[in-house]
């Protein structure tokens, strides 16, 4: 069951960017004047950005800061259960941004997590921003790794760094970025800290023609490796445009019902063929 993302390039022409935006809660620093919040109406946009992450890491706060909207923010896991969409323009280019329900992993079962997984897997956004909690990095990294196994068009927003500072926790951002192979930006979205850097990273990933390859799954079981390779070949034959056949093969070996359904009704291929990612 695929959740199609809007196709770029449709919609009205962009409004003149009103730097600073109209929202009373603007927390963005003045350097961010290349940003124009476009609220619900992104006008004409070239890129689609998805916001993923564990529950309660500040995804909706980032979303609100970028779009000027007021998506519900609350201090508990589970307040966002459906996706919300909005827009912003940065450096004169339009972006559509999708706020997703929190998810611990792409392998689990509840309906709100399915929403997130379907968008990431089948919607193929140009940039997936994984918002992680700097004070609980171990808990957040499994999702980052899973997203990285699907795509290389990823930016990690290391959010809540203000809380991390208060707790005396420091995260080596450069080391993390090197290990993950994608930009990592420290942010405190509630005060607008780091958002200019985040925007720059989003722009860079959205416009690159040469994104890093998806992380290859490592497992040391030769039997399993053989099975994955066999099945991945068949997946590639059936869905030629799918970039992460090994990942799909592994999910099928595990009997993931969501992926099986997507194979059965062909939506795995549909979404993959006219890829949203090619528009950048």
């Amino acid at each position: 069951m695929a959740t199609p993302l809007p196709t770029p390039g449709v919609g009205r022409t962009p409004e003149p960017p009103d730097a600073g935006g109209a929202c009373a809660s603007c927390a963005l620093a003045p350097e961010a004047t290349r940003l124009a919040r476009l609220g619900l109406d992104p006008g004409r946009y070239s890129h689609v950005v998805a916001l993923a992450g564990n529950p309660n890491t500040g995804k909706s706060t980032v979303f609100n800061a970028l779009t000027g909207l007021r998506q519900h923010v609350g201090n508990w896991a589970g307040k966002t259960v459906a996706r919300a969409e909005g827009g912003f323009s940065y450096g004169g280019v339009g972006y559509r941004i999708v706020d997703l329900p929190g998810t611990y992993s792409l392998l689990s079962a509840s309906a709100d997590e399915d929403v997130a997984r379907d968008v990431l897997l089948f919607g193929r956004p140009d940039v997936t921003v994984v918002v992680v909690d700097a004070t609980r990095l171990e808990r957040n990294l499994p999702l980052v790794l899973q997203v990285r196994q699907i795509t290389g068009r990823v930016v990690v927003a290391l959010n809540l760094v203000d809380e991390a500072r208060r707790h005396g926790i420091t995260v080596d951002v450069r080391h993390l970025a090197r290990e993950l192979g994608v930009p990592v930006v420290a942010t405190a979205a509630r005060r607008g800290e780091g958002l200019p850097d985040l925007l720059a990273a989003i722009e860079q990933v959205a416009t690159t023609d040469d994104p890093p390859a998806p992380l290859r799954l490592v497992h040391h079981d030769p039997e399993l490796e053989r099975a994955v390779a066999t099945l991945a070949d068949q997946v590639a034959a059936r869905f030629p445009s799918l970039p992460n056949t090994r990942w799909v093969a592994l999910r099928l070996l595990e009997g993931d019902p969501g992926i099986e359904a997507a194979v059965r009704d062909g939506s795995l291929g549909d979404q993959a063929a006219p890829t949203v990612g090619a528009a950048g």
Binding site: L137, E138, H175, L180
Partner: peptide
């Protein structure tokens, strides 16, 4: 990865 990146 977390252990090598975080200084508590």
């Amino acid at each position: 990865l977390a252990e090598t990146s975080v200084d508590r």
